[in-house]
Nucleic acid binder design. Structure first.
Lengths: 115, 115
DNA sequence: TTATATACCTTGACAGACGAGGTATCTCGT
DNA sequence: ACGAGATACCTCGTCTGTCAAGGTATATAA
């Protein structure tokens, strides 16, 4: 069963930027990669994905262009910008901090925990 | 500077249940504990806190009662229920899973990472 | 020709976080 | 006596990200 949307919230843009960090890609592929890498337990729905692309492009974190496919459905490709890399680095640090803070609040010695 | 609300979203109820897991408490105290334990970097705003209390009580995860303070402002105390403990355990497992999945998606060998 | 996969997009509803506002009691300094 | 600040509760309306549901179009396999 999939994870609740609320735990994803605030992380979708970071996840997208991570996928674009090393090479360009397009929406459908990114969505599929996330599904596969998480064993189907995590899914960015299309509406969520495209909403995030729009925000990221408005913020100057990514740029998009239509691919010149000669066959099959057309694709809109995305590239990360320098600003996008900075934003990814920042959001990754914030995520690490949030993780540790939340863990510190919910994990006690008595109950213990395994990661 | 504080963490973005979206990273908190979906975790506020778990954090509250964690605080109530071992002993009863009241809203103001829980808010203060979270602020202090996180060194001020994480804050559950009052509106957020009381909204979460209402949902948790509606769901049967906590019960509330007015304290019999003879001095000072009155307090509404909360106790966790057996259902609340189950719900906490469930949400903690879900949180651990979400953490690991998101980390796997954003942390690559090349970039590396420290917790 | 029908179904499935690929690939894009938009609209409206929903829910949780929060800013801003309110009430009331007690203590401390002036 | 008075005002400021801490304690302690609450509500309303706004904002924003997620998603369900719907749509378009092309290629391939049954």
């Amino acid at each position: 069963m999939a994870l609740t949307s609320d735990l994803l919230r605030g992380n979708t843009e970071m996840i997208i930027l991570a996928k674009l960090y090393d090479r360009e890609s397009y929406g459908y592929e990114i969505g599929k990669m996330i599904q596969e890498k998480s064993g189907g337990r995590l899914e960015l729905k299309e509406a969520t994905l495209y909403g995030a692309f729009r925000r990221l492009e408005e913020d100057g974190c990514i740029v998009s262009f239509w691919g010149n496919e000669t066959t099959g459905a057309r694709r809109r490709y995305y590239n990360i910008t320098p600003k996008g890399r900075l934003e990814f680095d920042r959001s990754l640090r914030e995520w690490q901090e949030a993780k540790n803070l939340i863990d510190a609040l919910v994990i006690t010695e008595k109950r213990g925990e395994a990661t």
